[in-house]
Design a binder for these strands. Sequence first.
DNA 1: CCAGGGATCCCCT
DNA 2: GGGGATCCCTGGC
Length: 172
Amino acid sequence: MAGRIVEVEAYLGEKDPAAHAAAGNTMRTRVLFGPPGYAYVYFIYGNHYCLNVSCEREGKAGSVLFRALEPLLGIEEMARARNVVVHAPRDLVKLTSGPGRLAEAFGITRERDNGCDLTQPASGLWIGEDGFFAKGIQLSCRIGITKAAEDRLRYFLGGNIFVSRGGALRPS
DNA sequence: CCAGGGATCCCCT
DNA sequence: GGGGATCCCTGGC
């Protein structure tokens, strides 16, 4: 399976009250304090996994949360994993639009993927480059948080239908 | 040991 | 548009 990254949020580490790293280096958050390029997967609301990539040097927290992908390869497999029947093109947004959805589509779990090296294709889960050049990146506030809720740290491709909430939530 | 909260999703109205 | 599901992690006692 493969998807293009169309929506992310930045979490700035220990000083960011909305970041998990604000709790310090604990059993749960230790990947965030490790070297860059590793998967931080957490379980939320008793139902969903979400995927981050660590972004700062060893010892310093800071990460990017993946909030939406545009499905590229393995759409039937994603649909099975999500228990979605794709009747029309518009059904595709149910596969990977949202952090919990994209994790389910890819079968990402904390047990399997937390701490894996996202820079290595051999990891099974990895971030690659296909020559696509993102144009029209827009910013907004981060979604679903109560602390530091005004910071514009959400980045998404304007007009891309796979952006969660249509990209319209609390713009600017 | 236990209570509370959480970077969500889905279904119902 | 609103509420319930559902469980892991953390911190306080």
